[in-house]
């Protein structure tokens, strides 16, 4: 339970001797990821904003994936989800993940549809 901590991150690639050193290790990982995000956000490399995947720029995909990566380490190591039982982990994570994916899908699809109405309709919105 709470007193035993799993001390491996990156699927066992990185092992820590104590919980405290694991915390500092995770801080370093999160800081590096944030630094990458900020640098990409400031410089916006040409090749990443030109191409798109599923109508979104590569750069934005990178930002979202890095965000989920950070969210994983905050939940798993700072909130000690790594040390909880599978049942609790799944109850919390899958509930949120399914509902959020559903909500985001519905709302973004609808937003895109309204954009098309504004864009191709006969009404002028810019006067």
């Amino acid at each position: 339970m709470a007193h035993e901590h799993k001390l491996e991150i990156f699927r066992g690639l990185l092992k820590f001797k104590s919980n405290v050193s694991k915390i500092w290790g995770v801080l370093i990982v999160l800081s590096i990821v944030t630094a990458i995000e900020v640098v990409l956000g400031i410089y916006k490399p040409e090749f990443l904003i030109e191409g798109t995947l599923l109508r979104m720029k590569y750069l934005n995909w990178i930002f979202i994936i890095l965000t989920i990566f950070k969210a994983y380490y905050i939940t798993w190591d700072f909130m000690h989800m790594r040390d909880e039982v599978k049942g609790l982990r799944r109850a919390v994570v899958w509930t949120a993940v399914f509902l959020i994916c559903y909500l985001v899908f519905i709302l973004l699809t609808e937003g895109d549809y309204i954009f098309d109405v504004y864009d191709t309709g006969f009404q002028s919105w810019d006067f």
Partner: peptide
Amino acid sequence: SGFLAAYGFSRFKFID
């Protein structure tokens, strides 16, 4: 996530 999804909705509405 409801709030952020609503933000995404409005942003997609005025994506250009």
